[in-house]
Write a protein that binds this DNA or RNA. Structure first.
Lengths: 138, 138
DNA sequence: ACCAGTACCGACTAATTAGTCAGGTACTCA
DNA sequence: TGAGTACCTGACTAATTAGTCGGTACTGGT
């Protein structure tokens, strides 16, 4: 899998952090575990509408390997496994929170404007002078 | 491309922010533009060792569409295009900085210990109760 | 004349990531 | 005996993302 594949030389801290959070559901898992403290597999699954079991496990395994989540297995008869954040997971979540706020702002913005930068083109509606004949007009 | 494809309903702010930063080089582009203020295409290319022209352009286009970078074309004879961050790009970069610090910490950690998760066990040296004795041993 | 450099485009391929689905364990309850 | 529960595994496929390479239009230097 990718998470095990990388961990390569990083350009910078963001690079290294992204390597660990990249994955369709990882940030959501992080948020869910942060919000509820500990969650069982099926609870996570229900909390993340649309996630497949395969991806959920895969991500949980990778995050466990990366030291973000802790996996506690209870030897019970209907199997019980509880997932929770490690201290590194908690601190990562904290580090993600400004990003979350930025994203929330963005949702508000594009929710209001419906499209992000196109307003700039609406201001200056050039009729596309010399398509492909000229230097880099789009 | 993917960036145009998504912008869908987001679960939360982090989700929305990740949608915009996801991409092998985007965070590096952000950092580069933040650091230098404005950069030309070829400068960015040289600053990001290993990036292909295709990906660089693709990412720049997506980030422009997302309102993060500004593209200024000078109608000169050796073509000249300058990229810079918009205010949204700048604020995104600021929101990413705690993540960058977390990542730097992580690099330090795994650089020292070589393996990530072991530190949690080192801090709390539980004898790993039901681990590896259960149904879901790996 | 020819090569390097600027800022790209676009077709094609490779690699990575995600999804579907069938199954498996280990035990309980009816 | 057969169904049900919780937590998975692994094979196969689809979708997405990234990389390679050739081309454009133009100029300045050798």
């Amino acid at each position: 899998m990718a998470a095990s594949a990388r961990r390569g030389p990083y350009f910078c801290g963001i690079d290294a952090a992204m390597d660990v959070v990249a994955g369709k559901w990882k940030s959501l898992i992080l948020w869910e575990l942060h919000h509820y403290g500990t969650r069982r597999f099926a609870e996570l699954r229900r909390g993340l509408p649309g996630v497949s079991e395969k991806m959920l496990i895969q991500h949980l395994r990778e995050m466990e390997e990366d030291g973000l989540v802790h996996r506690e297995v209870y030897r019970e008869v209907p199997p019980k496994v509880e997932y929770s954040l490690t201290e590194h997971g908690v601190s990562l979540n904290a580090a993600l929170s400004p990003l979350g706020q930025w994203g929330a702002e963005r949702i508000r913005r594009i929710g209001a404007e419906k499209v992000p930068v196109t307003s700039a083109e609406a201001v200056q509606p050039e009729p596309t002078p010399a398509r492909s004949a000229n230097v880099y007009v789009r």
